[in-house]
Design a protein around this nucleic acid. Sequence first.
DNA 1: CGAATTTGCGCAAACGTTTGCACCAATCAA
DNA 2: TTGATTGGTGCAAACGTTTGCGCAAATTCG
Lengths: 341, 341
Amino acid sequence: MTQVSITDIAAAAGVSASTVSRALQDNPRISPARRDEIKALAAQMGYRPSQVARSLVTGCTHTLGVVVTDVTDPFVAEVMKAAEAASRTAGYTLLFASSDRDPERELEAIRLLLDRQVDGLIVVSGRAGPRYAEIRSAAGATPATWPLVLVNNEQAGPGIYSVQVDNRAGAIRAITYLKALGHRRIAFVAGPERGRSSRERLEGYRQGLAANGLELRNAQVVGGAGLLEDGPRALAALMGLAEPPTAVLCYNDLAAIGLLAAAAHAGMKVPAELSVIGYDNIPLSAYSVPPLTTIDQPKAEMGRLSVAMCLQALDGQPVSNVTLEGQLILRESTTQLSSGV
Amino acid sequence: MTQVSITDIAAAAGVSASTVSRALQDNPRISPARRDEIKALAAQMGYRPSQVARSLVTGCTHTLGVVVTDVTDPFVAEVMKAAEAASRTAGYTLLFASSDRDPERELEAIRLLLDRQVDGLIVVSGRAGPRYAEIRSAAGATPATWPLVLVNNEQAGPGIYSVQVDNRAGAIRAITYLKALGHRRIAFVAGPERGRSSRERLEGYRQGLAANGLELRNAQVVGGAGLLEDGPRALAALMGLAEPPTAVLCYNDLAAIGLLAAAAHAGMKVPAELSVIGYDNIPLSAYSVPPLTTIDQPKAEMGRLSVAMCLQALDGQPVSNVTLEGQLILRESTTQLSSGV
DNA sequence: CGAATTTGCGCAAACGTTTGCACCAATCAA
DNA sequence: TTGATTGGTGCAAACGTTTGCGCAAATTCG
């Protein structure tokens, strides 16, 4: 026994398929008696409408595509979770694809999802730079078709929207706080090179230094990728310096937690000997040892908003980009610079 | 300009739609010259086949549904990541839904995905117990249609498969190891009550105790949900005991990391005063302070296998359930019991 | 050289819906 | 009574593919 279709019900009820279709949609042109009868029959026969057939005719799949760099990143997961909840309550389902941080794969994933006729797309922490507009026009998209919303990123273009946090401001806040604690040599562990948020946070770091009258030393910014593994490498590089920093701002919490682990392993006291600040405020940051001072990103809000914006655009409404503020969460990985150092 | 369809190409090439369809499929009945001509035209016009139209006629969407308790759980995310990669290389896309650990929502998600005509379903850490078979027959599924594979769970039924780790054995291994280190009072932080893996790990804990001639004290198993937040509560409960444990096995790494944080906060030395073992070997467990001794689950393997099994079943091949072994990963959260205690 | 086969392509049905339009019967207003 | 309106329903096209079948032309075979 295969799926029961609308014509099966029509046959059973002795009416036409169109009547069944209309009855199930509560079309007023169907008499209430028939409607109830048909609905009862449908329920009894366990009818479930085929979304694919419906999509074919309506041209709308009620599906949003979400492509991420890596689900394994707690920031990404948190955004996805909220996006899933929001889309579900709106009657949408999520098609999921992962790019593994490869811009090529990211674009490929977008194309794949478009082939599946997603109504809109959400890209979390995308790395495809200016190529979104290109792929959009290549797909023959008018400004009104399949909105693309970029989370934690920003690119101009018709039908391309973004929701992000003010990365620069967050970093500046962190630096200012560290300066107030007496720190003068503050390092930075950078994020993935292609990421827009990486650049912005680095920029914020620089501006923060300048605004606080602190000197920027190139050796104090070390490369990274926003991963746990960054921590040990970064710590080694930083501690090898003639004048090691007394505080460090990391691209994200993952790198910061990696740094914490490396410090503990090296027998270095945090925050006594080194203050550490992360970025994102992932749930784990409250449970690191010591608990991590960090800059919050309203991840759930971002996820929720990303689908809201998608839906709004689909609805033909004007949608404006949003950039939220991320506040500094004070925990125990930062402290006053002891006078001795 | 909307999407270019097969008939547009047919018109441009001066052939029929069926010829175009066949040409693109490399059907041998189309002459090579025509085929190349059509392919070139299709490429030039930017043709991308509509998967939904295709699905309607073939009855196969090349889509797998994956429903999880919570993407935010690193174990789940790790499994999903591998599943996504595997399905992508097999030409399948993933439809994603989250249950938020609610069995009702989990079933609802399954129904939703079925309406979308997914070819198969993967449920990670499902909590719906015996109701999978029920929903399967309600959907009029024959044993051959939409395979359902359960990750980190097991249920009998036609078309229902499972890939899991031997939870009991893993727990026993942990207890045996702790006993070898001299521990005699070993506590357990339990997982979510409805989870099958919770029950099995608890059972393994009990059997491990018994097998090592250790006494089971009910007060030494405390409730939890497999979350970071479990840690502080569990530690408080355990340390309030007249004879507090010298070691503790946790349902998963998250709870263990929470426990580590709580211990640090309480000024308690791990492992000197308390040995801690987790379960899952999530990436973070290598970066906790101290690094966590844990029982590995081959998460990537499980994700990969889950889609492989799905595809195998779809292919009509017989598929057998698999249960993997999870080895103990020794790190620094466990140590020899100091003689004084 | 005629018959049988092969090659290359088009027709049309099918998948399961939605929806514009036409149609008939009943009701209503005049 | 007649004409117009309304209420209820069915017909058929459409969405974009795939695929069984049929048919003509070209090729092969005896």
